[in-house]
Write a protein that binds this DNA or RNA. Structure first.
Lengths: 177, 177
DNA sequence: GTCTATAAAATGATAGAC
DNA sequence: GTCTATCATTTTATAGAC
């Protein structure tokens, strides 16, 4: 892996763990095993590096969601597989957490991939759920919100239990509909 | 309002807007119109002031939830009133947002009011929803998660629309159950 | 109680040698 | 490309006068 790649991967990890404001160039360099000069040679600065990291994380999120959403099975089976797939629940959503970072949301370039990724996810879930409902947009928003909110509850409780309960609850409601 | 009160209120605002890591003592002092010496006279430091601010915000959140949850009406009417009450949707949840702040979650004293508040909310919603379901715990977790996740989607989109859609979706599912 | 002065450390970079 | 200075600013306080 090249130095530039190691810098991006270190930034992805630190943005996930500590957010943008909580992540210093120095911490990125140390985790990547690179010096200051090296980082500023490959990237213009912290925002530039963050953009590379966020873009890669966003692509990753879409690809892994699509794996389950385009699989064979009924709409409910595919949504259930997506919601119940293995996750680092206590780490939260690497994209959703960035919505709480005011410096990220204030920068249109950093903000765009976050906005687009969550909009894509809503729209993609709506396509799948159209199989069981002619106007599934609101329910698709609910499903994405349960996921994002489930992470929040799990982090607050330091336990996956509230996350699992929230997912179980929405799947129960979907099944009874 | 006393200087100590102004410091606490300024901290509450800044924690909501910028989180713990993104809020400096200097910013708190400026917003409160107080000098450094004044702040350190009333509070031991940033964590001590944050604890006072978070405690007050947590109490406020509970009181305003309880207003709707203990009102007259059916369970669905009370939950609907709570979910649809007026909110600063684009600012997000002042308690839930702190779950993304690693320095807050690493400090047991700061973390406790967040954990307790969201656990209380789940439990309180479960009590209300027991009217329509003998085992409402999972659905209560879903409702709280939709709220927290709705804030995330709204901030990502810079629009209240996804929040409103997510709430509408879960209320539709609850009504059809 | 509030103010100003001081300060060690971290932050986010730039400069220039190699 | 990578490294080691160097640097202005911010952060998070402490000290002591008033």
């Amino acid at each position: 892996m090249s130095t530039a790649d190691r810098l991006i991967e270190s930034t992805r990890e630190l943005l996930w763990e500590r957010g943008y404001t909580g992540t210093s160039p120095k911490a990125i360099q140390q985790r990547a095993g690179a010096g200051q000069g090296s980082m500023y040679h490959h990237f213009a600065g912290k925002p530039d590096l963050a953009l590379a990291a966020i873009t890669r994380t966003a692509e990753d999120l879409r690809a892994r969601a699509e794996e389950h959403l385009c699989a064979p099975g009924t709409a409910i089976e595919r949504v259930t597989a997506y919601l119940r797939r293995e996750r680092d629940v206590l780490k939260g959503c690497p994209i959703g957490r960035l919505t709480q970072d005011p410096d990220v949301m204030a920068d249109p370039r950093l903000r765009a991939p976050i906005e687009e990724t969550l909009a894509w996810l809503r729209q993609r879930l709506a396509e799948v759920l159209r199989e069981i409902d002619p106007a599934p947009e609101a329910i698709a928003a609910t499903v994405v919100a349960v996921l994002q909110g489930g992470y929040v509850l799990a982090r607050a409780a330091d336990s996956v239990e509230p996350f699992t309960a929230a997912i179980d609850g929405v799947l129960t409601l979907l099944a009874a509909r």
